[in-house]
Amino acid sequence: MRTHVHTGTAEPPADPREVVLQVRHLYKSFGANQVLSDFNFTLYRGENVVVLGKSGSGKSVLIKCIIGLMKPDSGAIHLLGKEVTTLNHDELDKLRARVGFLFQSNALYDSMTVRQNLLFPLRRTWMKQEHYNEDEMVRQALKDVGLEHTMEMMPAELSGGMRKRIALARTLIMRPEIILYDEPTTGLDPITGREIVDLIVAIQKKYRASSVIISHDMTCVRLASDRVVMLIDGKCYAEGTYDELQRSDDPKVKQFFE
């Protein structure tokens, strides 16, 4: 794949792979602060894409728009065949059941045990479906993140890295087709951060889920990405593999690799 440095609003070349997420001409502002400005981006099935940008560049806003937690000012977000911006609440809930979201703060429910945290989304979206063994699903999700022994613990009893893994397990238990990661290594020491990145890569291989990873951690970008999208000035400024972007002569791209 060739590195593209986008200078206009031209559509990217057609690709034969299955598109699971397509963001087109997305605009979002907060007062006078234009955060996203004609942002375009495509995610293909089974692909890990890292959205790289400085702090405050609008990365988190982007994935919150994708999952419908924020409404964009204009533009289109086509997620798993549905246009997110036009869905009603019930339709959005159904779509969200197919998409996992790992929050930057983990967002574990303080008043619930690890087991209850994992069961919460499961019971609320799968409860109308036929038989499923919830104990087995909880055990499997915890096994995937290597924390089977924490089932009856409270979030406050866990370390930062463990909480991140549990949050990931809560995302995985829903068997999502797409996982959105909001700064998965922020606030973790380099070793734990590396473990989380390895886990993300292992999970992607095991479940073949597509992922959008929001990050400014270059180790995470290098290890977890199939493709990198650079969010600069509210736009998809450049995209390509890590190696391709590393070789770029563009000063705005180069500053991330120095």
């Binding site: 999952i67 967002a107 989304p121």
Partner: peptide, 8 residues
């Protein structure tokens, strides 16, 4: 927000 994305 986590609750909302969990379909609640």
């Amino acid at each position: 927000d986590a609750m909302e994305v969990s379909g609640t």
